[in-house]
Design a protein around this nucleic acid. Structure first.
Lengths: 210, 210, 210, 210
DNA sequence: AATGAATGAGGCTTCATTCAT
DNA sequence: TATGAATGAAGCCTCATTCAT
C-alpha cells in the first residue's frame, strides 16, 4: 500500500532486524519475524535485499557505524585519561540507552565470527583502530609517548563487552548504573597507574606492563 | 551396537553438544549434528532427552559446573588480592585451554537469556555467589571488611567475558597470552587501589568509588 | 526512456525470449530474465502481454513462421527428390546457423505439448501441411502420383528433429556438419528407393513399404 | 505408516518422477507433485535423496539403464542390418509401450544439457558406444569392415528421437505404428545401400559416404 | 508508455520430533 | 536399548503478476 522508496524500506528492515535479533537471537531472527516487525511482506524483504545475509551485513555495518560515532565524539577531550574514560562511558551509555542495540551487537559478534571470519574481525578491528587513532592524537598533544596507549582499546573493549553481557543477562537498570561507575573506576585505576609509570620513564620506549 | 547405559549416553551427548555449539553456534547445533558427533542416532538423543532444550539445559549446567570448579580451586590463597587474581586467571586459562568451552559459554549465555530468563540468571548468579563466598572468607581471615569484596565478582566476570569475546573473535593465541597479562594487570591496579583506600578508612561503611 | 510503440516492444520481447529459452530452458525463462534481455522492465512485459503464456504463444508462432519461410523457399526445385532434400537441408541449416533457434524449438515443442495439447499439434501440423503442399505440387508437375509423397514430411521432420537433438546435446559444429551430410544421405537413400518402386508400379495405389 | 525400506522408496520415487516429468515437464516436476505421486511426504523425499537434483540424476541413470537393456538384447542377431533394425525397433517399441518413458527421456535430455553439460553427454555417449560395440562385433563376425558401422548409431538415435517427438506431440498410437514401419524402412534403405557399396570395395579401408 | 514497489503462491530444503520395530 | 522410517512445521527464496504513480 504505502509506497515507500527502497532506501527507506531498507532502513526499516535494519531497525526491525536489530529489534528481532535482540529479542530472538540471531537464529531466531527469521525473515518472517523481521518482515512482520517492519510491517512488510517477506517477499518485500527480498525485494530490498538479495538474501537474509545481505540484510545482516547491513545491520552489521549499521551497528559498526554507531560505534564509530560514539568513539569519534570523544575526540575533543584533552588528556588520554579523559578521552579513554569518555569512550568507555559513551559505549556503555549506548548499551544502556538501547538494550536492543547491545544485545544485537553481542549476537552479531558471534554471527560474524562464524559466517564471515575475516569480516567480523574487520569491523571489530576498525572500531579498535579508530579508538587507537583518537588516543594517539591526544597522546601526542599531551606530550606522552604514543605507544603508551596501544593497549587501551583492548581494555576498553573488554570492559565494555563485559559490562554489556552482565547488563543483558540481568536486565537491571539500577544495577547497571552502579556497574557503569565501577567499570569506569576500573579503567581509571589501571590507566592512572600506567600513565604514572610511563611518566617516570623517558616518554620514549616503554614496555607493556604485565 | 554396544549397549551403553543412559547416564553415559547423556554425558556423551553433552560433550558432543559442547563441541558442536562451539563450531556451529547455537543455531547450527542441530540434533543431527550432535547425534553424529556423539556417534549415536538422532532417535537415541530423544530417548535420552525429551527435547533438544532439555539437552541444552544440561549442557548449561555442565558449563556452570566447570566454572564452580575453577573458582573453588582458588580457595587456598591467603589474601583477597591473590584470590581474586587467581580466580580471574583460572577462568581465562580455561577459555584459553579449550576455545570450545569458551565459545560454548558465550553462545549459551545468549541462549539462556532468551530461553529461560530466570534460569540464565540463576546460573550466572550462582557463579557470582560462589566467587563472593570465597572472597568473603578470605577477607574475614585477612581482617578486612567483607563489604570491600562485594563488587569484585562483577569486575572479574566482566574482565573474563571481555577477554573471551576478544579471544574468540580473533582466535590468536599469542595475542591472547598478552591480553591475559594485561587483563590481570587491570584487576590488580583496581583492586590494589581499592583495598588501599578501604584500609585507610574505618573497615566499616565503605562507598563504591566512581 | 525512449517511447517505443507496443508492436516493436513485443518483437523485442519475442527475440529476448528466444535467446533466454535457448540458454536457460523453458523453466529458466523467467519474466525477469526475459525483460532484462529485452532491456525493459518486468512490468513492461505485462503491459505488452497479459501473461507469460501469451508471450510464449507468440514466440511459438514466431518459430513456426521461420519454419514456413524455410520450407517455402524450397519451392522452385523441380523434382520431388531435390525438393525434399532442399527442405531437410534448409531446416538443418537453420538449426546450425542459430543454435538458439534450435534449442528454443526443442524446448517449445515440449512446452506446447503440455500447455496446449491442440495448439502444439496445430503448429506442428501446419509445418507438415505446408511441406506436403509443396511436395504435391512438385510431384504433380513431375507426373508422379501425389500419394507417393504423403510420408515424406514425417521423415523429414523426424530426421531434422533427431539431428537437432544430437547437435544441441554435443554442441559440436564439426560433427554436426558431417551429420548433416549423413542425414541428407539417409533421406536420399530412402526416397530414391521409394520413388523407384513407385515408378515401376502403376502410379496409382501405392502401399507404404515396411 | 507403511514402513518401507529406503531402497524400495527410492525406486518408488524414481517411478513417480518419470510419471510426473512426462506429464508436467521437467520444470513442472516439483517435489510436491513427485511426493504425491509416490504417495509419500515431501520430507520423505528428502530423507531418501539429499536434493531434487540427486533424484533426477537417479532417474537419468534409470532411463539410461533401460536403453542399455534394449540395445543389449539385440545382440544375438547375425547380420549388421538385422541388428541395427532390431535396436531401432527396440527403442521405438519402448517409447511406444510407455509414452511416459519417452516423454521423460526427451525432457531429461534438455535437463542434462543445461544442468550437467558433460554428464548429459556422457550418458548419451554411453548408449551410442554400447550400440557401436554390438554392431562392430556383429560386423566382425559377418566379415564386414568394422568402420562401416561407425555412423549407424547416430542414424538410429536420430530416427528414434525424431519418432519420439512426433509420437509424443500427436499421441496417436495408430499413426505411431505406421510411423514405426516407415522409420524402420528408412534405416533399411540407407543401410542396405551403404552395405552394398561397402561390399563392392575391398572390405578393408572404407570411407564414410556423404 | 513506463516503471518502481508490492504481494500471494509456491519452489526446495532442514528441523525437531515421533512411530514402529 | 537401539534405530531406520516418517512427518508437520517452518526455514529462505523466487516467481508471475498487479498496483500506483
Amino acid at each position: 500500500m504505502a509506497r515507500i522508496p527502497v532506501a527507506q524500506r531498507r532502513r526499516d528492515f535494519i531497525d526491525a532486524a536489530v529489534e528481532v535479533i535482540a529479542t530472538h537471537g540471531i537464529d531466531g531472527a527469521t525473515t518472517r519475524r523481521i518482515a512482520e516487525q517492519a510491517q512488510a511482506n517477506v517477499a518485500m524483504l527480498h525485494y530490498c535485499y538479495d538474501s537474509k545475509e545481505d540484510l545482516f551485513a547491513d545491520v552489521y555495518e549499521h551497528i559498526a557505524g554507531r560505534f564509530r560515532e560514539v568513539i569519534e565524539q570523544s575526540d575533543p577531550h584533552t588528556t588520554v585519561l579523559e578521552t579513554a574514560q569518555s569512550i568507555l562511558r559513551g559505549v556503555m551509555e549506548s548499551y544502556f540507552e538501547s538494550p536492543a542495540f547491545g544485545a544485537t551487537t553481542i549476537e552479531l559478534i558471534s554471527w560474524a565470527r562464524r559466517q564471515h571470519g575475516d569480516r567480523g574481525i574487520a569491523v571489530y578491528d576498525q572500531a579498535m583502530t579508530i579508538g587507537l587513532d583518537v588516543l594517539r592524537r591526544v597522546a601526542a598533544e599531551e606530550g606522552v609517548g604514543t605507544e603508551v596507549v596501544d593497549d587501551i582499546p583492548y581494555v576498553i573493549g573488554a570492559l565494555a563487552d563485559g559490562f554489556a553481557i552482565n547488563y543483558l543477562t540481568y536486565g537491571d537498570r539500577t544495577a547497571a548504573r552502579t556497574q557503569m561507575e565501577i567499570t569506569s573506576g576500573v579503567l581509571h585505576s589501571w590507566l592512572s597507574e600506567r600513565l604514572h609509570v610511563a611518566g617516570k620513564r623517558s616518554p620514549r620506549k616503554q614496555a607493556s606492563r604485565a
